[in-house]
């Protein structure tokens, strides 16, 4: 893999039933490990617990570069929906159009498919250096 210059901060959204506090994957989950292997930093890595809620205020404070919508396939959440959530337009991922749909089937169950998930993550998070 080509070298990367910076590790972007990524928020992986598992579920946004509560738009004020969506669920994400915490430290030690394989989504967390895969994001780290894909050359990025998982926002949920510093939280406590495996599958945790994080308040939108915390998201605004941490200001992630990317938001991956893991609830796109199963929940039908689209990037446009994210921009309409109150307060979310202050997050740089939303401002710069880096809210991306992501097929959660690739990363939510352990198995050989995780490799495809890693590839998809690297492609999404480092579009300039991915070959």
């Amino acid at each position: 893999m080509a070298s990367i210059s910076a590790r972007p901060l990524v928020f992986y959204e598992l579920d946004s039933t509560d738009v004020n506090a969506p669920y994400t994957s915490g430290p030690g989950t394989f989504i967390d490990l895969l994001i780290s292997m894909a050359g990025a930093e998982n926002l949920g890595h510093t939280l406590q617990g495996e599958w945790v809620q994080v308040s939108v205020e915390e998201l605004i404070r941490r200001n992630p570069d990317y938001i991956l919508l893991g609830d796109y396939v199963w929940g039908g959440i689209k990037p446009e929906d994210v921009a309409e959530r109150p307060g979310w337009d202050a997050i740089s991922a939303v401002k710069e159009g880096k809210v991306l749909p992501f097929d959660d089937n690739l990363v939510s169950r352990p198995g050989p498919r995780l490799v495809d998930g890693l590839e998809a993550l690297a492609k999404a998070l480092h579009p300039d250096v991915f070959q």
């Binding site: 004020n20 939108v56 205020e57 605004i60 109150p86 307060g87 337009d89 202050a90």
Partner: peptide
């Protein structure tokens, strides 16, 4: 700080 705008005007005040 600019981030206060979103936090106060769009999240906390309406809540």
């Amino acid at each position: 700080p600019q981030s206060f705008d979103a936090i106060v005007y769009q999240i906390r005040l309406p809540h």
